[in-house]
Simulated scan of single mutants.
Amino acid sequence: MKTLIPNVTTILFLWFLSLSISAQDFQGKAYYFSKTPMDLGSWGARMSEAQKKQIEARLKNRLEKTYILTFNKEESLYKEDEKLDAISGATDSWGKNFTPGELYKNIKSNEFAQNQEFYGKQFLIKESLSPLDWKMGTESKQIGQYTCFKATCKRPVTDTSWWNFSWGELSNNNAEKKVDTTESSDSTSTKLASTEEEVEMIEVEAWYTPMVPISQGPSDYWGLPGLILEVSVGNTTLLCSKIVLNPEEKNKIEAPDKGKLVTKKEYKAIITGKMQEMRDNRGRRSNRS
Rank of each mutant, 00 (worst) to 15 (best):
K121I: 12
K121Y: 05
Q122V: 05
F123K: 12
L124N: 04
L124S: 06
K126Q: 15
L129A: 06
L129Q: 06
L129R: 05
P131M: 02
D133S: 14
W134H: 08
M136C: 00
M136H: 10
T138R: 12
T138P: 00
T138E: 12
T138Q: 13
S140M: 08
K141G: 02
Q142G: 04
Q142D: 14
Q142N: 15
I143G: 07
I143N: 09
G144P: 03
G144V: 13
Q145S: 13
Y146N: 07
C148P: 00
C148V: 04
K150P: 00
K150C: 04
A151M: 08
A151I: 07
T152S: 12
T152P: 00
C153K: 09
P156S: 09
P156N: 10
V157L: 15
D159N: 15
S161W: 01
W162Q: 05
W162P: 03
W162G: 05
W163C: 01
W163L: 01
W163R: 02
W163N: 07
F165L: 05
S166L: 08
W167M: 13
W167I: 09
G168E: 11
E169W: 12
L170M: 11
N172W: 07
N174F: 11
N174C: 07
A175T: 14
E176M: 11
K178P: 01
K178D: 10
V179H: 07
V179T: 15
V179R: 12
D180K: 07
T182E: 07
E183F: 06
S185P: 01
S185A: 11
D186I: 08
D186N: 08
S187T: 14
S187K: 13
T188D: 02
K191P: 03
K191R: 13
L192C: 00
L192Q: 13
A193D: 11
A193I: 01
S194H: 08
S194A: 10
E196F: 14
E198A: 09
V199G: 04
M201A: 02
I202H: 01
I202F: 00
I202M: 10
E203P: 00
Y208P: 02
T209H: 06
T209W: 09
P210R: 10
P210K: 10
P210V: 02
M211N: 04
V212W: 08
V212A: 06
V212G: 03
V212K: 09
V212Q: 07
P213Y: 12
P213M: 05
I214E: 02
I214Y: 08
I214P: 00
S215V: 01
S215E: 11
S215G: 10
P218M: 09
S219C: 02
D220P: 00
Y221D: 07
G226H: 08
L229K: 10
E230L: 03
S232T: 15
S232P: 02
G234S: 12
N235A: 07
N235R: 14
T236W: 06
